[in-house]
């Protein structure tokens, strides 16, 4: 198939970006979207004698939909047109011969562009560092079967834990909210007994960090769920809100009952 590609080019974080247009011919419909970009890059290398341009930088690693590294905004949609699919698993058969395809990086304040289509998602790591774990150290833990967990809860925890940290939810959201990502982690632990001990600290620390890093508020448009390649449900956001407020109430109650000391 023949394609026209409009691709965002940006030298580095500080530079001003622009769209460049590229033509590609003879692309097999069995080719994956990223392989199509590989072919374009190969062509750019081979064309160097004529015009010296840099190849197009984009993030990718596993190419199996699990590492969360690929992050392209295709024709106005994070990860492109196919539901529940990362861009590395998207194939060219979902496009038509002669199509023009626009490719941009994630656009969100907390994810600055590194170069071309690459963005910096360190903000997600920082949210996890604020509390997305159980504080257990290596060793000295009980036998794995010491605490039975309802299968249903374990399955729901797994649904939430399937988040790949790609950031499509943020890119899809007009407020650049990270609620779905944070809620997925909070839910995973909220559903498991191992997560209970630090539940209050966790949800408050993670939400505070998310706000501090400049992610926006959630206005319940659910674009995040629609674009999430792992189909993470917005029910997790509801669960997180419950956690947040119930934990806040407990905190208030505790403060009241301990009040006399004030």
């Amino acid at each position: 198939m023949k394609l026209t590609l409009k691709i965002w080019r940006q030298e580095n974080a500080k530079a001003k970006g622009r769209f460049e247009t590229y033509k590609l011919d003879n692309i097999s419909s069995d080719c994956s979207f990223l392989e199509m970009l590989d072919i374009l890059n190969e062509q750019l290398v081979n064309d160097q004698i004529k015009l010296p341009v840099d190849t197009i930088s984009f993030d990718h690693d596993c190419r199996e939909g699990i590492c969360g590294m690929c992050s392209l905004y295709i024709n106005g949609r994070p990860h492109g047109p196919e539901q529940g699919t990362t861009v590395c698993q998207l194939h060219m058969r979902h496009f038509k011969d002669g199509d023009t395809i626009t490719i941009e990086p994630w656009r969100a304040g907390p994810f600055p562009v590194v170069k071309d289509l690459m963005v910096d998602r360190l903000a997600f790591d920082k949210i996890i560092q604020a509390g997305g774990f159980t504080s257990v150290s290596t060793g000295g833990v009980p036998d794995a079967n010491a605490i039975p967990i309802r299968k249903e809860d374990a399955d729901l925890a797994m649904d939430a834990a399937a988040c790949i940290g790609c950031g499509a939810c943020v890119a899809a959201c007009k407020n650049a909210s990270a609620m779905l990502f944070v809620a997925a982690k909070v839910s995973q632990f909220a559903l498991l007994p191992q997560g209970q001990i630090e539940a209050r600290e966790r949800v408050h620390a993670m939400v505070a960090k998310m706000d501090e890093l400049g992610f926006g508020n959630c206005s319940n448009t659910y674009a995040c769920e629609a674009e999430c390649p792992k189909n993470i449900s917005v029910e997790n956001i509801a669960r997180m809100n419950r956690e947040y407020f119930s934990q806040a109430i407990t905190k208030a109650n505790r403060n009241q009952s301990g009040g006399g000391a004030g």
């Binding site: 159980t134 833990v141 009980p142 079967n145 039975p148 967990i149 299968k151 374990a154 399955d155 797994m158």
Partner: peptide, 18 residues
């Protein structure tokens, strides 16, 4: 043991055990 304590959601049976 370590992974369960970390909250790794391993597959479980209806009994609640791994």
């Amino acid at each position: 043991d370590q992974c369960v304590a970390q909250g790794v959601p391993f597959a479980r049976e209806y009994s609640g055990y791994l």
